[in-house]
Simulated assay, not measured.
Amino acid sequence: MADRRLQVFHAVAKQLSFTRAADALFMTQPAVTFQIKQLEEQYSTRLFERRHGSIALTPAGELVLEYAEKILALSDEMDIRIGEMTGEMRGPLLVGASTTIAEFMLPRVLGEFNALYPQVRARLIVANSESIENRVAEHTLDVGLIEAPAKVSGLNSQICCEDELEVICVPDYPLAEFAVLRPADLADYEFISREPGSGTREITDAYFRNHGIAPESLKTQMELGSPEALKGVVSTGLGFAIVSRAVAAKEKQLGELLSIPLDPPLKRSLYLVHPQERFQSRLLVTFIDFARRKLKERAV
């Protein structure tokens, strides 16, 4: 196992915050500060410049970060390879997912995976696609499931399944009388949108642009950070939203919301992302294959 001080230093260097690093490591901030102080005393140099309300790496800190990433990666690889020699799938699995996937698609997949491999300790981090992609690139997540191809260099994107998005509204909203909706049909109605950085927001903006409608010209009433928040506002009758078919399945069955397909259909690929040039454990490879298979089955 790698030196704990290096693990703490790596977290602080990546977050550039003692407080956020402490939260990520489940430590107190004084404990994090003590570990960094010990490391600085060992090398007789400062690793961070303390500024008003912020910190930055010194040149020595940049060098230590470069080696810390190599040492921690090798330590993880050693632990995994030794574990694999026993023939048992075990260890931590850090999975990140965008909110739509995390709330409506992934829980069952993780539950079934855990039933097959009970010694695996999966941890799910939920954020929008942009945040998940960045955390995978920083190696603070093993794998991410997002709603658009990765934009950050050094990441490998694999399509895991297809998803279709539809308009949702309450049964007495004016759009409810339509059997299908074209992009131009939506321009005069109140739109409840996802927030910038969301994969859903990115694909809906592109859809409107491709059909001659500038997203900024829509009557956007709110920008919200989760599918549940979208449904909550739409259920008040304030406007319509565009979401994955999986998002409103329960509300449609109960008659609380209607879903209306778009014409032409709005479909997207969902992606598994992981670092390109990094050792992949048998656990990670197994999970990626399992998740792709299960998500494809549920999309049919």
Rank of each mutant, 00 (worst) to 15 (best):
S244E: 04
S244A: 10
S244R: 04
S244W: 04
R245E: 10
R245K: 14
A246F: 13
V247Q: 03
V247N: 05
A249P: 01
K250G: 07
E251G: 00
E251F: 03
K252W: 07
K252E: 14
K252Y: 08
K252T: 10
K252P: 01
K252C: 14
Q253E: 06
Q253Y: 01
Q253M: 07
Q253H: 06
Q253T: 03
Q253P: 03
L254G: 02
L254W: 00
L254H: 03
L254S: 05
G255V: 03
G255E: 04
G255M: 00
L257G: 00
L258V: 09
L258Y: 03
L258Q: 01
S259M: 07
I260G: 02
P261C: 03
L262H: 02
D263I: 12
D263A: 13
D263R: 09
D263Q: 13
P264F: 11
P264Y: 09
P265G: 07
K267F: 11
K267Y: 06
R268A: 11
R268F: 07
R268C: 10
L270E: 07
L270Q: 06
Y271P: 02
Y271V: 08
Y271G: 05
Y271R: 02
L272W: 07
L272Y: 07
L272T: 07
V273W: 02
V273E: 08
V273N: 03
H274L: 14
P275V: 14
P275C: 14
P275E: 11
P275T: 12
Q276A: 14
Q276L: 15
Q276R: 15
Q276W: 15
